[in-house]
C-alpha cells in the first residue's frame, strides 16, 4: 500500500484530477445545454417527447462504441472524450428538467399568469424553483455516471484514472487496477454527496422535509 503510494502517488493525483476535470467539463456543458433546453421544451410538449427519445437512443449506444466513434471525427485526446461524455450527460438532465417543469402544480402557474406575470417570469420565478430538486437529481445522477464512464476515456487517450486500470489489465498488475478503481469510486461518492447537499439547499422551502437545514 505505502509502496504503491510512494511509487504512483503523484501520478495518482494527476490522473484523479484529469478524471474529475473531464467529467466536470462534460457535466457543465451538459447542464448549460440540457437545462435551458428542457425549460424551453416545456412549452412544446410534443417536441419534448421527440427530444427525449432521441437522447434516450444516444444513451443506448455502448460507451466504448461512442468513444470509438469520436476518433474519426475529433481524433484522440481529451476533447473527443469530453464530447462523448457530454452527450451522455444530456439525457438524465434533459429528462429530469422536463419532468420537473411538467410536475409544477398547474394551478400555481395559472394563478401566477393570472396575476400578470410574463411567461418568462412564470418560468424563472415560479416553475424553475419548484422544479429545481428534480433537475438537481438529474444532474447528480449524470455526474456520478460521468465520473465512472470517464474511466473509459483513457481508451482514446484522454488520460484519467482509466490509465491505471487499463495498464493494470495489460500488464496484469492487480494493484494498478485496484489503485485506479478505488479513487474512481471515492470520487463518485464524494460528488454524489456534495451535489446532494447542494440539492437540499436548492429545494424550495415547501418541498423540504424536516427542514432544519439552516
Amino acid at each position: 500500500m505505502m509502496s504503491f503510494l510512494n511509487e504512483y502517488g503523484s501520478d495518482l493525483l494527476l490522473k484523479t484530477w484529469e478524471q474529475l476535470y473531464i467529467s466536470l467539463i462534460a457535466l457543465s456543458l451538459g447542464i448549460i445545454v440540457a437545462v435551458p433546453l428542457g425549460i424551453t421544451l416545456n412549452r412544446f410538449p410534443r417536441t419534448a417527447k421527440v427530444m427525449i427519445s432521441i437522447s434516450s437512443m444516444l444513451q443506448t449506444v455502448p460507451s466504448l462504441a461512442l468513444l470509438a466513434l469520436m476518433i474519426p471525427i475529433f481524433g484522440i485526446g481529451k476533447f473527443p472524450a469530453i464530447v462523448a461524455l457530454f452527450i451522455y450527460s444530456l439525457l438524465p438532465i434533459l429528462r429530469n428538467t422536463c419532468i420537473g417543469m411538467e410536475g409544477v402544480d398547474p394551478s400555481l402557474i395559472d394563478s401566477a399568469k393570472g396575476m400578470g406575470m410574463t411567461r418568462w417570469q412564470v418560468m424563472l420565478q415560479v416553475s424553475l424553483p419548484q422544479a429545481l430538486p428534480v433537475i438537481m437529481a438529474g444532474i447528480r445522477l449524470s455526474a456520478v455516471y460521468l465520473i465512472a464512464w470517464a474511466t473509459l476515456a483513457s481508451y482514446i487517450g484522454a488520460g484519467g484514472l482509466g490509465d491505471f486500470i487499463f495498464n493494470g489489465l495489460n500488464l496484469y498488475q492487480p494493484e494498478l487496477i485496484i489503485g485506479g478503481t478505488i479513487p474512481v469510486s471515492l470520487l463518485a461518492l464524494l460528488t454524489d454527496f456534495l451535489l446532494g447537499r447542494l440539492e437540499q439547499k436548492l429545494t424550495p422551502v415547501n418541498l423540504r422535509d424536516g427542514g432544519e437545514d439552516e
Binding site: L108, S111, G114, G116, M117, T118, N206
Partner: peptide
C-alpha cells in the same frame, strides 16, 4: 399582461407561490 395586473385573481387552489414569503406573495403584483 398589463390588464391582468389591474384585475385581482383568486382561484380555489389559492396559488400562493410556495417558495416566496407571505410578504413577497402579497407584493407580487
Amino acid at each position: 399582461i398589463e390588464l391582468r395586473r389591474h384585475i385581482g385573481y383568486v382561484i380555489q387552489n389559492i396559488g400562493l407561490i410556495p417558495h416566496m414569503t407571505l410578504e413577497d406573495n402579497i407584493c407580487l403584483v
